[in-house]
Design a protein around this nucleic acid. Structure first.
Length: 279
DNA sequence: AATGAAACCTGACAGC
DNA sequence: TGCTGTCAGGTTTCAT
C-alpha cells in the first residue's frame, strides 16, 4: 500500500511513540510468507532489545536496535509493508485485527502490530553477523528521491532504454517512488508516462526532478495518501489523496485543461495521465 | 544486460 | 444472494 510519503509518516509515528522502549515479548504468526529471516531467529534477536531509533530508507522501515552484551553489533530490524501492510502502535486491550502476523509487546505496556491481508509485506534482520564481519548499515536498493541532485537525477535516467514511468518505479535507481507518485510527478512535469527515459531533454528531467521532490514533500506534510485503507502508526488516515490530479481519476476532467484523464497499463501498472497536458 | 509479463495473495466493488 | 471479472499503494521470478 505504501510509498515513500506513507512509509515516512508511519516511521515517524512509530519513532515518536517507541523510541527508547524495550521489546519484551515477540510473537509471529504461523504463516511463513512475511518473513525473510527465520521467525525463530528473529524472535530471539529482537527479544530484550531497546529501540534506539525508527526511520525510513526507501520504502523500508528500519528499527535501529541497541546492542546487547555478547550479541551482534548494530542490529537492525527491517520491515517492508508490501501493498497492504500496516504497522500499528496499539493498546494491548484493543482486539487484534484479522491478518495480524507479528506482535511485539513493549516495556511501556504498548504493542507494535504488523497487519497485512495480502501478505506481500516482508520483515528481516539486518546486521546479524555469523561471519563476524563488520555489519553495514541498511542502505536500501537505490538513491533517495528527496536528496538526489538534478545532476545525479539526470545521470540516473538518461541512459535508460525504457519508459520514464517504468524507470521511476525501478527501486534500484530511486527507491521509494511507487505508482501514485510516479503518475502524479509525471503529470506535474507535463511528461507522458510512455516517453523513453533516454529521449527526455535535460529541461524535462529537471522539471521531473523538481515535481517529484515537491509532490513527495507535500504528501509527507499531509500524512500520505489514503486510497483504500492506509493509516499511520496511530491508525489515522492521510490527506494527500485529495491532492491527486490524475491517479485514479480516469474519465474525470483534467484539473488544468478539462480533458478527460486517461488510463492505460504500462509496466504492468495502471497508469493515469492527461493526453493534453502531458507530451 | 535489461525489459515486460506473470506470479504471489486477499478484499472491495461493479455488473449480471 | 451469489457468482464473475476487474482492480488495488509492490516485488520477485521467468521468459524474451
Amino acid at each position: 500500500m505504501p510509498e515513500l510519503p506513507e512509509v515516512e509518516t508511519i516511521a515517524r509515528g512509530v519513532d515518536e511513540r517507541l523510541r527508547g522502549d524495550r521489546i519484551e515479548t515477540v510473537w509471529f504468526s504461523e504463516k511463513p510468507e512475511p518473513f525473510n529471516s527465520p521467525p525463530q531467529l528473529m524472535a530471539k534477536e529482537l527479544h530484550g532489545r531497546r529501540i534506539d531509533r525508527v526511520h525510513r530508507v526507501g520504502k523500508h522501515i528500519v528499527f535501529d536496535l541497541a546492542d546487547r552484551p555478547a550479541s551482534s553489533q548494530g542490529l537492525q530490524w527491517i520491515v517492508h509493508l508490501g501493498m497492504t501492510g500496516r504497522l500499528l502502535v496499539a493498546d494491548p486491550a484493543t482486539p487484534l485485527p484479522p491478518h495480524t502476523h507479528a506482535v511485539l509487546q513493549l516495556k511501556s505496556g504498548r504493542e507494535l502490530r504488523f497487519v497485512d491481508p495480502r501478505r506481500f509485506g516482508r520483515m528481516a534482520l539486518h546486521g546479524v553477523s555469523p561471519k563476524k564481519t563488520k555489519p553495514k548499515r541498511f542502505q536500501g536498493t537505490g538513491q533517495e528521491p528527496l536528496s538526489i541532485s538534478p545532476d545525479e537525477f539526470a545521470a540516473l535516467f538518461r541512459p535508460r532504454r525504457t519508459s520514464i514511468k517504468a524507470a521511476l518505479l525501478n527501486q534500484k535507481l530511486l527507491h521509494g517512488v511507487g505508482n501514485i507518485y510516479a503518475d502524479e510527478s509525471l503529470f506535474r512535469a507535463g511528461i507522458r508516462p510512455r516517453r523513453m527515459a533516454r529521449h527526455l531533454k535535460r529541461a524535462e528531467l529537471d522539471r521531473l526532478h523538481a515535481s517529484l521532490q515537491s509532490v513527495l514533500s507535500e504528501a509527507i506534510s499531509l500524512g500520505g495518501s489514503s486510497v483504500s485503507d492506509y493509516v499511520d502508526a496511530a491508525g489515522v488516515a492521510g490527506f494527500f489523496q485529495l491532492e491527486h490530479r490524475v491517479y485514479l481519476r480516469t474519465g474525470q476532467p483534467c484539473l488544468v485543461c478539462g480533458t478527460p484523464i486517461r488510463r492505460m497499463v504500462l509496466a504492468g501498472r495502471g497508469t493515469h495521465y492527461c493526453p493534453h497536458c502531458q507530451r
